[in-house]
Amino acid sequence: MENIIKDIQNRFEVSDIVNQRDNITFVTCEKEKTIALITHMKKNLGFKHFVLMTAVDWIEDGLFQLTYILNNPKKKLDVAIRTFISRENATMETAHKLWKQVSTYQRELKEMFGIDFPGSPRVNESFILEGWNDIPPYRRDFQTKEYAEKTYFPRPGRKTNDPSEYMKKNMS
């Protein structure tokens, strides 16, 4: 593992290295170098199994974190690559050419987070949310409860009491 991290550190200047466990390390890579790094890891370092990719919304920093987790089935190692992209007009280079299933992930990210992957097959087709016209729902600023209250109907007649308020009212 150490050698692998050293190798990608030299070549791609990855930072924020966290050895989460013996066999999984998280690294941060610049947006522009990320796909090259992933390609390098797949082609030259044996990280043939693509575990997942997903996004994390750091709305307070105005950033999306994209996480790609790659696995080396022979050496039984995982490396997770984080890269940060701007939330404004979020776009990322597509990685669909490396693994077949990547386009599905990218399609989902487009729909759920609004991150575009130009060139990724069917990336603009709706994946789960047919006919959705609100903001991408997995963004932090999408309020699930508000949405549910607006869209569905609460059971009428429900009301609750806060014990301390109720006691203050009844005991003074």
Partner: peptide, 27 residues
């Protein structure tokens, strides 16, 4: 953040979990 996996009857089943230090998960 971490990624943990297990072998379900269908194969590798994993959770990628991110915590921002608050009471609720970040992702």
């Amino acid at each position: 953040e971490t990624y943990v996996r297990s072998e379900s009857s269908r194969g590798e089943y994993g959770f990628y979990t991110v915590s921002d230090g608050s009471k609720t998960p970040r992702r």
